[in-house]
Amino acid sequence: MSVTENIPTRQIDRSQMKVSDEIAIEITGMNKWFGTFHVLRDINLTVQRGERIVVCGPSGSGKSTLIRCINRLEEHQKGTIMVDGTELSSDLKNIDKIRSEVGMCFQHFNLFPHLTILENCTLAPIWVRKTPKKEAEETAMKFLEKVKIPEQANKYPGQLSGGQQQRVAIARSLCMKPRIMLFDEPTSALDPEMIKEVLDTMIELAEEGMTMICVTHEMGFAQAVANRVIFMDQGQIVEQNEPKEFFNNPKSERTKLFLSQILGH
C-alpha cells in the first residue's frame, strides 16, 4: 500500500470542512483492561466539532478498542469520556443519548441480513428516534441516494457486493442523523476496486463538515481528508500531528518504523 494509492481523483471541496471551538469528544486519563491485559493506557484526546481524525497503528495496538469505547461497545475502567457534554457511565440514559448522537461503521458491515436495505435503514429511526415510518423511509431514500444505491432499496444485504454493503452501512448510520461518525477499518474487508467507492462516500461526508474518527490504513485518505493523524502502539497514543508533518517528518522511532512498513515496498 502506498500513499499515492486511492487518492481521490477529484478536487476536494474544503469550504465546509471547518473545525469549530466546540468540543465534541473529550477523553481524559482513560484506561482499559481486558482481564489483566492493559489494552488502553492513559488515553487523553480532545476532538473538536468538524475534525476528521485518522487513527492508525499496528494491529493489536488498541485503536479499534479506543473508538469502540466512545459509544460504549466496550466499557472503560478508569478515566472519563465526555461526548457532547454527556459523560459515559453505566447510566443507561446517557448511553442511549450518546449512541443516538454517534454513528458507527464496522469492518464487516454488520447489516441485518433478514431485513431489506430500506428496512435496515429505517429500523433504528422508527424504534429509537420514533420517526413515523413514511418519514423514516423518505430520509432513508435520501441517504441511499447520497451513497448512490437507491435502486437497491428493496434487496437484501446478501444480494449486494461488499462495497455496496458498506455504503448501505454508512447510510444506515446517517439515518440516525449523528453528529459524530466512527469508522472501524471500513475498507479492510473489501476488494481493492470497492475501496474507492467507500472512500468517496466518506470524503463526501467529510466535505459536509461531519466530525469523523476513522481507524484505517488508507494513508491516501488520511492525507487528503484528515486534519489530524494519531498513531497508536501498545495501547497508547504515541504521536499525533497534522497529516503532512506526520507523513513527511515523523518524530517517534515507532512511527517511523510503522510508516516504513506500511508505505515501504
Binding site: M17, E51, V238, E239, Q240
Partner: peptide, 18 residues
C-alpha cells in the same frame, strides 16, 4: 471559529512508552 485545521492541533509525541 478557525478556518485552517492546523491551529487546533496539539502536536504530541510520546518520548517514553508507558
Amino acid at each position: 471559529m478557525s478556518d485552517t485545521d492546523s491551529e487546533v492541533i496539539s502536536f504530541f509525541v510520546r518520548e517514553k512508552m508507558l
